[in-house]
Write a protein that binds this DNA or RNA. Structure first.
Length: 332
DNA sequence: AACGTCGCCAACCGCGTGTTT
DNA sequence: TAAACACGCGGTTGGCGACGT
């Protein structure tokens, strides 16, 4: 790709602060920019000889005028012997799409499940190739701004899990939504699926609001089973925040929370419309399950443990990735 | 041939978190 | 306990080659 720029003046950082911190005894010039073959060779041979350690020490001991951070990046993204070079296979591509639907932009976690691939590589691949491909795919099948729900494209989400919920759910659900909202959800590189979902579902879009969520206070609150069970969110939405029993379809729901009993209920509550809301703290990455009749009563009734998103049954889900239905864009 | 535009991707930056002093 | 340091992550930038005009 890019040829190393060996001597470009603008690529040599003279930064006394960094130099004072990282290179007290040596010179105070830290190179930036592309790595030369000589630098690669130095770092490679040092790493193979001594293994990983403190990166600033590595930078110094290997005789590199680089900061440790730069060395670490170069090693991880380029020099590591176990790296797989070359184009992504279709299988890898599918896996990336699938994992992204679960994990969002957590590239390092996605990379951890793709041997020989780096987070940077996957991130670049997603932002350039996959994103564009999905976009083209949707645009190809998109009628012009047609808001008749019977004519507009529908997106089949084979499983709630594919939407990053990490919750076992009914399969083959049909969600009717405008394509650009789906696009926002899956292609907003600046946000994870969660935040994209948040954006989409809290949108004040006049022609298709999804007022099922409350993202005030950096929280995302949603009634999973009810909103998801609705086959036609747009058409059936009753216009209020915190839709409750309206979506009662008797759908069994199961929320898997590590360290607690699996919570499986049905919507047959003798007429009661008590809902189980799932709350994600968008700022602190916390999630909880709460029961409330009033979705605005955020945080009133704690039912579940406070835990990070990463502590969901995500690992289990990912381990079973092979049985996971891929996100499937289909037209009907 | 010259110029402009676009896409890819290596590398940087800022921030959060964990560890050490 | 706080400060300093190291590491890792995700977002962003900018250079280069390819391609179009």
């Amino acid at each position: 790709m890019r040829k190393p720029d060996l001597m470009g003046k603008d690529r040599v950082l003279i930064n006394n602060n960094i130099a004072n911190n990282n290179n007290k005894n040596n010179n105070n010039k830290l190179r930036k920019g592309l790595w030369s073959p000589e630098e690669d060779e130095k770092l490679m041979s040092y790493m193979l000889r001594n293994g990983q350690g403190c990166w600033s020490d590595i930078a110094r001991n290997a005789g590199l005028q680089r900061c440790g951070k730069s060395c670490r990046l170069r090693w991880i993204n380029y020099l590591r012997p176990d790296l797989k070079r070359g184009a992504f296979s279709p299988q890898e591509e599918e896996l990336i799409i699938h994992l992204h639907s679960i994990l969002g932009n957590r590239w390092s976690q996605i990379a951890a499940r793709l041997p020989g691939r780096t987070d940077n590589e996957i991130k670049n691949f997603w932002n350039s190739t996959i994103k564009k491909r999905l976009k083209n795919s949707l645009q190809t099948h998109s009628p012009n701004d047609c808001h008749d729900s019977s004519l507009e494209p529908r997106v089949v989400v084979d499983n709630i899990n594919a939407m990053g919920m990490g919750v076992g759910g009914s399969s083959g659900m049909l969600l009717s939504m405008h394509e650009h909202e789906m696009m926002n959800m899956y292609m907003d590189s600046s946000s994870s699926s969660f935040s994209s979902m948040n954006t989409m579902l809290t949108s004040n879009h006049l022609d298709n609001p999804f007022p099922l969520l409350d993202n005030r206070h950096d929280q995302m609150v949603f009634s999973l089973p009810n909103c998801m069970a609705k086959p036609e969110m747009t058409d059936e939405f009753d216009g209020r925040y915190g839709v409750t029993g309206g979506g009662n379809m008797g759908v069994e729901r199961e929320i898997s929370i590590p360290g607690s009993q699996s919570n499986s209920t049905t919507e047959e509550n003798n007429g009661a419309t008590q809902n189980e809301y799932y709350t994600i703290d968008m700022k602190n990455n916390n999630s909880k399950v709460e029961e409330s009749d009033n979705i605005f009563g955020v945080g009133n009734h704690w039912q579940g443990e406070n835990m990070g998103i990463g502590e969901w049954d995500l690992e289990g889900l990912l381990e079973n990735a092979s049985s996971f239905p891929f996100l499937d864009f289909q037209l009907q």
